[in-house]
Amino acid sequence: MSDNIVLCGVGGQGTVLASQLLAAAAMARGLPVKTAETIGMAQRGGSVFSHVRIGDGAASPLIGCGRADLIIAFEPAEAVRQLAYLRAGGTVVVSSRPIIPVSATIGGPAYDLEAIMAYLQGYVENPIVVDADAAAADLGSEKCLNVVLLGAAVRTGALSLAVDDIRAAIRMRLPERFHELNLRALEWAPVTACA
């Protein structure tokens, strides 16, 4: 049993914390875990990714192309950017909200959300699209998209972790004043079984 997860997004969105919560949840279950993080210049608004490998048989912290079971994308274009890692039949959980790069707003190649979502739908069967704007409005915070996505990801059943494992990881890893918000965030996304 092993889970290979790619988390991706834009620097500053909280991908590193999400990967840490997954790792903490796996460790609490007694599972071996390795991760690789993007830390450094790319964190300043650039494309970032984390690789999380849970279970036996992971030598490298990096996942090979076509070997990820799950992509958790904090941004639609970044989901597409990482698709080469997804194995056939793998799952994609993606935030609906685009973050338009400055290169596009000042007249570079345009950000075409419709084309991006269409490509994603064509590449993966039933990508799980999380409505980030609705989540932020309901939860009253922009800061917990990472946990909303984790909740959606875990409930696909694509991982060997359960919602309770992430709940415990939140209590263990986050300061107490953030528990209530993040526990609500974890429950926010509707239950969607993956195909």
Partner: peptide, 12 residues
């Protein structure tokens, strides 16, 4: 990817 994505280099 068959789809051309806008680049996202780091910025201030």
């Amino acid at each position: 990817n068959a789809l051309r994505l806008p680049v996202r280099p780091p910025v201030p």
